[in-house]
Design a protein around this nucleic acid. Structure first.
Length: 433
DNA sequence: TCTGGGGTCCTAGGACCC
DNA sequence: TCTGGGGTCCTAGGACCC
């Protein structure tokens, strides 16, 4: 607990709050906490949710018992295993995390309609006091913490006048922390912190700032704006405003998904065309299925490859017609891979993505959608017949997969390369809705 | 055993149009 | 004949987030 005040006791006269109030609710070691909730024998022990150490896997979440050993998110699993060899290891059960997350998000939406879900385990809330609801933001935060704990996991909350301050405050005291930065205290709160604390400042920006003698948010707040704009473009201005506590970005309801992708890192690099084509077919099928599940058709098809030296190439093409059908767009992917790869070049990763969805999330119908009123069989041109057959096959496949799981149906060319992939967890909200 | 997977946003250059 | 801008779309690459 730290910040301007420590309202952990309930007998509080809380200092009054003037102006906007933003909460950032962050679930503590979320995936690992759910595992400990569901496996009582794992409670109090180091638990690591992550990919296979022998297959380029990384740590997704480490329980608080594993952290004293130095285990951190995004660390290679092989390193984590060395640091904490006795940890309980699990690949994760993402449907379960999504279900738990949905229950928690329902609590947040019950507290206020102004919720912006950032990921499976994070959300901003606007709880600015109004004439109708004058409740103090810190009191709202306390109640949220109690309600979340009733579900068996915990959260840390930051309270401030902006998203920037709320987010950074939530990180100051974990787990189960509540950090409140009162209006007017923003600059003093931010000034001593390293620039890296700011969302949007990563390794590259940190290094460039350091070369200009800027190490703390106080340095950044006092830096020359035109210099920052020269270095970082429009983001330089944003960084300066945020470091001064002047960020007024609103809490926005979650908007439509903009892309859907699937990528896989292989345990052993691929060098043969048959393996590469099989991998592309498998990933295209996953992307197609997720597109259909979400009711999206995309026009921009992307392919990404990573080589054994970790260098990355990407290719992107516009489709003549928006598609959610991998049987239609896979041939295009196979032409695209030829632009960046030759047999013999060791491929560590392949990714397939679709974007360019119709405006406003409206689903564009296929030119020959089977749901359209069907003309008599004899009147149907061959192209439409083919399209109908294809849709029928796709729909039948999806049905089987719904009932028996993703692995139940595989097309011939998807078969090779199976059992060769590394696994991990996404925290992107689009995957958990 | 050195670094996953799913996303978002920005930049810069070229093509093309008016 | 020679010349300018601006706008939009597309592509490749990269930084960043959880």
């Amino acid at each position: 607990m730290r910040g301007e005040s420590t309202p952990r006791e309930s007998a509080l006269p809380l200092p009054s709050w003037e102006g906007p109030a933003i909460l950032l609710v962050d679930l503590d070691a979320f995936f690992a906490s759910v595992e400990q909730l569901d496996h009582p024998a794992w409670r109090g022990k180091p638990v690591i949710v992550g990919g296979d150490p022998d297959k380029h896997g990384v740590v997704s979440t480490a329980s608080y018992e594993a952290r004293p050993f130095g285990v951190r998110s995004a660390m290679p699993s092989s390193t984590a295993r060395r640091l904490c060899p006795h940890a309980i290891w699990t690949r994760g059960r993402f449907d379960r995390y999504r279900q738990m997350s949905n229950q928690i998000m329902a609590i947040l939406h019950d507290e206020t309609p102004h919720v912006q879900q950032v990921s499976i385990d994070e959300a901003f809330l606007d709880v600015t006091p109004t004439a109708v609801n004058r409740e103090h933001p810190a009191a709202v935060a306390r109640r949220i913490q109690r309600r979340v704990e009733e579900l068996g996991v915990t959260c840390s909350i930051g309270v401030g006048t902006s998203k920037t301050v709320a987010k950074i405050a939530s990180d100051m005291d974990k787990p189960r922390g509540l950090t409140v930065v009162y209006p007017g205290g923003e600059r003093d709160f931010l000034a001593p912190l390293p620039v890296r604390a700011l969302s949007g400042v990563g390794a590259a920006a940190e290094e460039r700032l350091r070369s200009h003698g800027i190490r703390t948010l106080g340095d950044l707040a006092d830096a020359d704006v035109s210099m920052l704009v020269r270095l970082f473009g429009k983001n330089g201005l944003v960084m300066h405003v945020r470091a001064n506590g002047g960020d007024n970005a609103p809490v926005e309801e979650d908007d439509a998904v903009k892309s859907v992708s699937n990528e896989t890192t292989f345990a052993r690099d691929l060098t043969e065309r048959a393996d590469v084509e099989a991998a592309i077919a498998t990933m295209a099928a996953k992307v197609g299925r997720r597109l259909r599940r979400k009711g999206l058709k995309g026009r921009t098809l992307s392919l990404r490859v990573k080589f054994d030296d970790r260098s990355v190439r990407s290719v992107q093409r516009q489709l003549p017609v928006p598609s959610d059908d991998e049987l239609a767009f896979t041939p295009q992917l196979e032409r695209m891979v030829d632009e960046v790869w030759r047999p013999g070049m060791p491929l560590r990763l392949i990714g397939v993505g679709m974007s360019g969805f119709a405006e406003g999330g409206a689903v564009q119908q296929s030119l020959f959608d089977v749901s359209e009123a069907a003309p008599a069989e004899g009147d149907v041109p061959p192209a439409i017949k083919d399209e109908r057959k294809r849709r029928g096959l796709i729909e039948a496949t999806d049905l089987v997969r719904d009932r028996f799981g993703e692995e139940a149906v595989r097309f011939g060319r998807e078969l090779r390369g199976k059992g060769n992939t590394t696994g991990s967890a996404s925290k992107n909200p689009a995957d958990y809705k």
